[in-house]
Design a binder for these strands. Structure first.
Lengths: 191, 191
DNA sequence: GTCTATAGCCTGATAGAC
DNA sequence: GTCTATCAGGCTATAGAC
């Protein structure tokens, strides 16, 4: 159906999404107008309505795209990755549309979440594995979330902004709490 | 300057703020119109402009009010407290206006943050106290943040929504990580 | 201090030419 | 598929009566 754009690798529809995602991430749904998106893409608003029935649909597809397209998924975001991903996630968490959250849960978080829950059961049978899984993720994500605030708080060091430092801190804390070494790829997690 | 409203306890200006805060918390700055606020208060939009020069000013005062008025401050929010506080905080973290974040840091978070940092230095001298302080707060706040998402993930239990459960989980994790009992009011924290 | 009325702009969305 | 032109309505903010 869509024209072959082998030369560029993206068709028009995808180009619109790519331009829309950072805009929605930066200022949220009602902070971005169809005109803003059209200007970013370099087309008229009418062209947008050829590809998407309305603004809401464009937003939904854009969010879905941002979350699932970044294929390997959350690992990148946890490992520091895409700021747009984090911003969109924060916005979705606070805007709280049940339909979109369900989609986010099923299509993005279900698989890695279950993996972490399974690990949690193994490592700390006496703690609630679901809350623990959440805490593990939160130890990293919350650091990034609060970064803009902590920049204005005392004790700020440049390395606090580096993903590596944050990851190391979270690991150290978990090692102490769960009595294991940080997970190694060779699978030696029962020692 | 403002009329004495001893009977009601609030003047008009404060009434506007009280009505505006939950609106801004629910749908964000650009998601709330001056008409929405006026309707909630029961006055015309023109009346709003008598008390505040423009929408941005109203928003700033409202956020300030929400953060500092809840006097004892963060403890309530951490302990589960005000959903408006959490929602506004999440929105401010992601919207990232430097001026507002600075105000938030100085007037709301500075004091309790330093207290937690001091505690962190004592309990875990080998960990970064600033990151640890952040983690301590995050263990609780992140649970609330992700609640709307976790409702759609497996393993959901009703008690995961209860502040008490979340607090207990965070405590248990910290006890394991830092090798101390949960802080008791009698100050027995060096044993 | 609050109102009604309105200016002037921006919004989402559509019609119809090409 | 994309354009220009446009609609109806919402928006912030103001003017002026009371």
């Amino acid at each position: 159906m869509s024209v072959n754009h082998a030369a560029t690798g993206v068709d028009r529809r995808e180009l619109i999404l790519m331009q829309a995602i950072p805009l929605f991430a930066a200022t949220g749904y009602s902070g971005v107008s169809m005109r803003d998106i059209a200007r970013a893409v370099g087309v008229s608003t009418a062209a947008l309505y050829h590809h998407f029935p309305d603004k809401q649909a464009l937003y939904l597809v854009a969010v879905d795209h941002a979350f699932t397209d970044k294929a390997e998924g959350i690992r990148r975001a946890l490992a520091a990755g895409d700021p747009d991903f984090r911003a969109l996630l924060q916005r979705e968490l606070v805007d709280g549309d049940e339909t979109r959250l369900k989609l986010l849960a099923d299509q993005v978080f279900l698989e890695p979440y279950e993996a972490i829950v399974a690990l949690a059961k193994e490592l700390a049978p006496d703690l609630d594995p679901y809350l623990l899984a959440n805490s593990v993720v939160g130890l990293v994500l919350f650091c990034f979330e609060t970064l803009p605030l902590r920049r204005h708080l005392p004790g700020r060091k440049p390395e606090h902004e580096k993903p590596k430092t944050i990851a190391k801190h979270a690991s150290a804390l978990l090692v102490r709490a769960l009595g294991v070494e940080a997970a190694e790829p060779d699978g030696g997690r029962s020692g």
